[in-house]
Structure formats: C-alpha cells, structure tokens
Design a protein around this nucleic acid. Sequence first.
DNA 1: AAAAAGATCAACCGCACCCTT
DNA 2: AAAGGGTGCGGTTGATCTTTT
Length: 347
Amino acid sequence: MSQNFDTIGRVFEQNLKMGHRCCSKQKIKRGLWSPEEDERLVRYINTHGHKSWSSVPKYAGKHFLLHVWLQRCGKSCRLRWINYLRPDLKRGSFTAEEEQIIIDIHRILGNRWAQIAKHLPGRTDNEVKNFWNSCIKKKLISQGLDPQTHNLLSSHKRSFASTISNMHQNSNSICIISSHVPNAPMETTFQTFSSLPKPPPSVVQTSSSIVTSEYQTSPIISNKFSSDLPYELLIDHASNICSPSFMNPPAVELPNNVNSVNWISRVNVDDFSAQTLEEGTQVEVQQEMNTTCEDKGTDVIEASKGNLESSASFESSNFDFGLLDCVLSSEFISHDLSCMDELAWNF
DNA sequence: AAAAAGATCAACCGCACCCTT
DNA sequence: AAAGGGTGCGGTTGATCTTTT
C-alpha cells in the first residue's frame, strides 16, 4: 500500500510540474484505465449517478474500496464514462448508414462532433471524430472531395463538369441545385444524398455557376428566370411531372387538375419572377413558395404564377426535414427517376 | 522473422461557456 | 459585476495494433 501512495505522490508531483490545472489539487493518476478502476467507477455511478463529476473520484474510492482512491480527476472520470463505460454505447464498427449520416451532417455543421454524434445513438463524439479522421476523411479525399468543405478538389473539378453534363443528357435524372447561396458548394453532394428517400421527378434547377441549360427531353418547359437570379429552372414536362420534392413518394398526392401546376418542393427558393417558355409562348410567372419543415404533418405550398395557380399538400415523411432544410439552401441533389407517376404536373 | 510504417482509438489538454457565490 | 468551479467540446497526442517491406 505504501508503494501505491509513493506512486500517487510521484504522479501528483509530475502533474504539478506539467501544469495540469485540473489535477493539481488531487493525487491524480493519468493514462489508461485499469479494469479495477472501470469497475469502481461503474459501481459508483450505478449507485450514485454522476451529478457532479468532481466528486466521483473522491467517493468512488471511499465507498467501495476503503483507502484506495480512484486517483482520477473528475474530467477523466467523465470522459471514461461517456466514451467507454456508458451502458448505452453501441460497440463495433460504423455501418454504411451511420457513415452516410456523418458525412451529411458534417457537410452542414463541420467539425461539430458532439452535434453529429447526437444523430447517432450509442456513438460518442470522440468515436465519430476518430472515425472521421481515420476513415471518412481518406475516403472523401480518394473520391476527390475536400473533407473540410466537401467541395471537389481542384484536380477533380473537370471530371465533375463532365458528370453534370452527362446528367443533363439523361432524361431519367433529376437534378436539383438550390441557388439560394450562389457560391454554395453544390457539386459536392452527389453521393451524400444517397440516403434520402428517392424523390418523385423531375425538375432541374441549376446554379449559374454550372451552366447546363439544354435538356434533351421533350416536350420541355423551361423557366428562365430573370438575369439577376443566379439560376435557371428546367422542368421535364414529358411525363406531366414536376417536383423537386424529397418527400417519400407515397406521401405525395396531388390532384389531377388540368388547370393547375402542382409543385412540391423543399427547395428554399425566395419569391422570384420567371418566364415560362413553352413552344415559343412566354408567360409571366410569379411564384411564391412557402415551405416549413417544422410541421411534418401537412405542408402546403402555394405557388401563384400569374394565371397559373398551384397548391400541393403532402403528409409526413420520416426524413429529418429540419436537417434537410439546412442543406437545401445551398446544396445539390441528384436522383434517378424510377416511378414517374407519383406526381403530376398538369396544365 | 523483424523492423518500419501506417492505422486506430483512448485519453489528455486547453479553451469557452455556464452557473453559483 | 467579478471570480471561481464545473462541464462540454474540438484538437491533439501517444500507446497499441496491424500491415507492409
């Protein structure tokens, strides 16, 4: 036992020399935790909880192993509990789904590991951070993406432009790029949205920074917005469908009204003016889109377009709209079309 | 088989914020 | 209002494990 306290004393002096403020008032052990320490901490917390971490090391020793102090500062106890001993922790490697969630949220929040971890039950911020640094970061780089900005690395930009071009040659693609933030890193989110429910088709909205104005489908309605807006909108009319929605398709039901335009969208588009071009006819269009994702029950989007009126309602989706809303003001989404009859665009 | 390099991850550090006194 | 303690967070370190040479 005396040898034990000698060790404690040495550690304490060392901590003082090293300037460990949080440890300077206690005889603090550092480094890896032993199974005995783990057991002591778990037993203490199971009995007393952890209302005050600073009191844990003191009482964990006193209550369960007389005169053998836990010798850890509260901070260390807290970390050990949160990152390792907590019973609700999920063990094992991250799943593909978890990885995708991390990427998606990181694109929005950056290195806010604690916030990201809150979306992953059973995972800790430390775990997420380590996983990011050891795996995801490298994976993104290998895919030509900057892991911090999620932008394409400069060496990959040319090939991306080619991809975009190919998409626009493909009538079975839906491609939504919000223009709300003109310089947003839209090009980065192809794969990061793969976890979203497949949307019904089929509006293409592009930023002016990627000019892809000609769509190959026919017939086409092309809404070319006024020049002060940083985008244009192309609508595939071939299948009477217009929707940049990311809702679950089954949740969307639209009236088949030949006199209305049904437009469901979560794209964060401000009021804007546009011109509709159809077979040489120009129609002044005024659109107002209100979408609130807070109410997941029923959203109604009103779109008034001069003599064209539209409204659509949809029911709840299991997707995290709050999150999505953050994304959509600056991002880009791509999906293949699979079920073209989910929505209708009727005139 | 052994050494070197790379990968992983638990733990620590310093800072910022919040709350209490 | 200021000081001090507690807590949470992101960045970093270093020990250990794994893979490569």
